[in-house]
Design a protein around this nucleic acid. Structure first.
Lengths: 213, 213
DNA sequence: TTCCTTACGCTACGACCCGTAGCGTAACTG
DNA sequence: CAGTTACGCTACGGGTCGTAGCGTAAGGAA
């Protein structure tokens, strides 16, 4: 999180964990009120009731701070067993959509990703603390579907991993693009239609009638 | 583009079209060299050889300027007829990926989208000058597939539009997420696997060892 | 306890960028 | 010609950045 290695510093005054929490909370509040571009380190410090220098002792800058502030929100995602693969997919899509409706994540996610295109260490940070952690949802959903007999078991681990990555990018990408780029709502109807497309492909999506001609 | 309505101003010294072109070109160059976050209006003006005030007479700020600067790049996307729906999809995926490999688009696209979450007029500008313009590719691809008999003709225009929007978000979203969030390459293999998933759905995607390509 | 080490709050600072005002000049119209 | 608009240039107040320096607070070790 805040880069403090407990091994490194055993002596001296310890970092205030209360300050850590206050800063991250203040960061989220500032994201809600001001949005990414108008959020400043000074404002966060003032909201958190700490000195600006305290922020810089923990984080290199705005990018890293915001990543840590929003990362925890993504861990709230869950995959309750809804009985079928289709229902599970639809459920996680709606959950992810609800997460992206929150102003904090809405304004922060794309911004830090944009920054990460020019900052390798930031990219790794995002990957470790946000992206990769959510792949568990795909893995769990597939495992369940396999137990139900809805999906075949892939014996080749490499192929299985590649497929999981693909599915992850398709689901997360579609939801993000729908909400933030197309700027249209991800509601139950859309989630249902998307799930049908994902499970059955382009043919079945439009093809309730046969392409006989 | 630069908000000048030829009807509005018929008299007086006309806007320099050369300056327009120079500014947009300088903006792209600055994006390449500095990236979104370090790009400044002053730097763009200096590169373009114009005064900073000239930029502000045409654009409200960095957001609008960058949108206009990169929008033209997206118009280069085409959809050559490759003989089948699968080939067409794969082709456009690779083209879009190539576009997102360019440092200008890479750093700018996500950044302006992030800004647009807090700026309605910017969101409309992005939609009009970038997003909606690319939906033509989906419409054209579907039309072609229908002519080939690969897809059924959807008689309900509302359903057809909704499906086209869905497909657009899935394709664009997946590519963007793969490249910018997961930060992994969109190569021929990935495009092929993605296309298979899109056309045949999750079942067939993991079942590709089955006989019968 | 008394040192030692590290964290904290606070202030102040140069550097940079923002967006605009004001001015004289340039270009085009009727 | 006069009228109108665009341009280049300079200068400015206001804001943020990231850091240095200082005195103080909170722990661990002798």
């Amino acid at each position: 999180m805040s880069s403090t290695d407990p091994q490194t510093a055993r002596t001296g005054r310890p970092r205030s964990t209360a300050a850590d929490a206050a800063i991250l909370e203040a960061t989220r509040a500032s994201l809600v009120d001001l949005g990414w571009s108008k959020l400043t380190m000074g404002d966060v410090a003032a909201r958190a009731g700490v000195a600006k220098t305290t922020l810089y002792r923990r984080w290199a800058g705005k990018n890293e701070l915001v990543v840590d502030a929003v990362a925890v929100l993504f861990d709230e995602l869950e995959l309750p067993d809804r009985g079928s693969l289709a229902a599970d997919v639809q459920g996680v899509v709606l959950q992810f959509a609800a997460l992206l409706e929150r102003p904090e994540t809405r304004t922060a996610l794309m911004a830090v990703v944009a920054e990460s295109t020019r900052d390798d260490s930031l990219r790794v940070r995002i990957r470790d603390s946000i992206v990769d952690r959510q792949k568990r949802l795909v893995l769990e959903g597939r495992q369940r579907a396999q137990r139900r007999g809805e999906l075949p078991v892939e014996p080749d681990a490499v192929v299985a991993d590649r497929t999981a990555d693909l599915i992850f990018d398709v689901i997360a990408g579609a939801v993000v693009h729908r909400m933030l780029v197309s700027a249209e709502p991800v509601d139950t109807d859309w989630a249902r239609q998307f799930t049908l497309l994902l499970l059955s492909g382009l043919g079945a999506g439009t093809m309730e009638r046969r392409p006989g001609s």
